[in-house]
Amino acid sequence: MRRIDALGISLGVFVAAGLIYVILQVLGIDSINAGIWTQTLLVIGLIGWSLTYLLRVSSKNMTYNQQLKDYEEAVIQKRFEEMSPEDLTKLQQEIEQEKESQTPKQS
């Protein structure tokens, strides 16, 4: 996230809180209770956002993790493309041997 994005989000939250406060006052709630309800809604929103962030961290669904995965796949693909046909055949044989050694033998 760029700095300007963070500033825009902060300004948006500030404006939204002001609008909620004004709407609650228009609905007939006195200014003290309107302020309390506005703060309550903002705290609930902050807690909800924090929970979604923690969920993304725990599931490793973050931008950095995705970039790292894409990079690793690109490196493997580039190395694969640079291999000669003989190397590809040798690699395929090694993979098949490894698969055979890992499969349980039935008796």
Rank of each mutant, 00 (worst) to 15 (best):
M1T: 12
R3N: 05
D5L: 09
A6M: 12
L7A: 14
G8Q: 03
I9D: 04
G12Y: 07
G12V: 06
V13I: 15
V13W: 01
F14K: 03
F14C: 03
V15G: 02
A16N: 03
A17Y: 07
A17E: 04
G18L: 01
G18R: 00
L19G: 00
L19M: 15
L19P: 05
I20F: 05
I20S: 02
V22T: 11
I23L: 01
L24E: 00
L24I: 01
L24P: 00
Q25T: 04
Q25I: 10
Q25L: 08
V26E: 02
L27E: 06
G28L: 05
G28C: 01
G28D: 07
G28T: 01
I29K: 14
I29P: 01
S31V: 04
I32D: 03
I32Y: 13
I32L: 14
N33V: 02
N33E: 04
A34W: 10
W37R: 10
T38Q: 04
T38D: 01
Q39V: 15
Q39I: 13
L41H: 05
L42S: 09
L42P: 00
L42T: 01
L42F: 13
L42Q: 09
I44R: 13
I44G: 00
L46M: 08
L46W: 06
I47N: 04
I47Q: 07
I47D: 01
G48C: 10
W49A: 14
W49F: 14
W49I: 05
S50V: 11
S50E: 13
L51M: 12
Y53M: 15
L55F: 11
R56T: 08
R56K: 13
S58E: 09
N61A: 13
N61H: 14
N65Y: 09
Q66S: 02
L68C: 06
L68G: 03
D70M: 05
Y71S: 11
E73Q: 13
E73R: 15
A74G: 11
A74Y: 04
V75S: 02
I76N: 08
Q77I: 02
R79P: 10
F80Q: 03
E81C: 05
E81Q: 00
E82G: 02
M83D: 12
S84V: 03
D87M: 14
L88F: 10
K90H: 15
L91D: 10
Q92G: 15
E94K: 15
E94Y: 11
I95N: 02
E96L: 13
E96H: 07
Q97K: 15
E98S: 07
S101C: 03
Q102G: 03
Q102S: 00
T103Q: 14
P104G: 04
P104V: 07
K105L: 11
K105V: 10
S107M: 07
S107L: 06
